[in-house]
């Protein structure tokens, strides 16, 4: 494991040289992630690693891609998706137009999950799904809609557990160990790089999903991001977080009402 002081030096340098600010990331996880890249890339001395990061923008990009956690799955936590399907989508369906933001979408599995549910609810045609991440490489994967075939069985199980009743295999074409999801699912998706640490609100949404992203941030940054979501959410819109995340330390509880047992909150006033 790298030393605390080394980590802090790296954080400072990455900010100074490239403007990416990891200063408010939870240290325990960040330290593990940086140590992982350090050893993975065969470095022996931290100063070599540091100088590579400073002088080689391509390498710095690789390092950032590697330290951000990009583990995701389709219909992750099926009971959450069941609630979305049964309770939230019918409410959103009454609107003429539905704007959804997946913040920290990683490789996009949850975005495609959402598109499938919207399609089945007959709402995809009037929806737009903005999907953003700090990491440009994962967005490329997300855009392609191509995911490893070995995961598909789990995804099909999740899909079923989340209330899906169609034949899941109708949504993709399998080839060479990969599943390519149908283009009609991605037609309504807009992918772009967005950094929750430094970027601002860019639209008003009816549903914002940010699942298992806030866990990597300290309390102050969590507060900032929740307020960014608040600024980006229409009244009566919904905010959905990961199963172990909460807004309760970040924003006035009179403004939001938790929905069912899931980590979904509805904005009840401006």
């Amino acid at each position: 494991m790298i030393e605390d002081i080394e980590l802090e030096t790296l954080i400072n340098d990455v900010y100074e040289y490239y403007g990416f600010d990891f200063g408010s990331y939870s240290r325990a996880s960040l330290k593990r992630r940086v140590s992982r890249v350090f050893y993975l890339d065969g470095f022996k001395h931290f100063h070599d690693f540091l100088s590579k990061v400073r002088t080689d923008p391509e390498y710095c990009k690789r390092m950032i891609d590697e330290i951000t956690v990009n583990v995701t799955e389709m219909f992750r936590d099926p009971s959450f998706y069941l609630t979305l399907r049964k309770e939230i989508l019918p409410l959103l369906g009454t609107k003429p137009f539905i704007r959804i933001w997946h913040a920290g979408c990683s490789t996009g599995e949850e975005v495609y999950s959402m598109a499938i549910m919207l399609k089945e609810a007959g709402l995809l045609h009037k929806s737009i799904l903005y999907a953003t991440d700090i990491n440009a490489s994962v967005l490329e994967t997300a855009k392609s809609g191509i995911f490893p075939l070995r995961m598909i069985k789990d995804y099909a199980d999740n899909y079923r557990d989340s209330g899906g009743q169609q034949d899941f295999s109708d949504y993709y074409i399998a080839n060479y160990g990969f599943a390519k999801f149908n283009d009609n699912l991605s037609e309504k998706m807009v992918f772009s790089q967005h950094n929750l640490v430094s970027d601002t609100s860019f639209n008003e949404f009816d549903l914002i999903l940010c699942r298992n992203v806030l866990i990597y941030f300290d309390n102050n940054l969590q507060k900032r991001v929740i307020n960014l979501f608040d600024d980006s959410l229409a009244v009566l819109g919904f905010l959905a977080l990961g199963t172990k995340e909460t807004i309760k330390y970040s924003i006035s509880q009179t403004k939001y009402k938790q929905f069912a047992k899931e980590k979904i909150w509805r904005k009840i006033k401006e």
Binding site: S26, R32, Y216, G242, T243, K244
Partner: peptide, 21 residues
């Protein structure tokens, strides 16, 4: 520790979670 998360310890004596590999 909740299932499907790694459980980590922070200096300020809080627990944090991580969904990495």
């Amino acid at each position: 520790a909740p299932s499907n998360y790694h459980l980590l310890f922070e200096k300020n004596e809080t627990l944090s979670l991580d969904t990495s590999e």
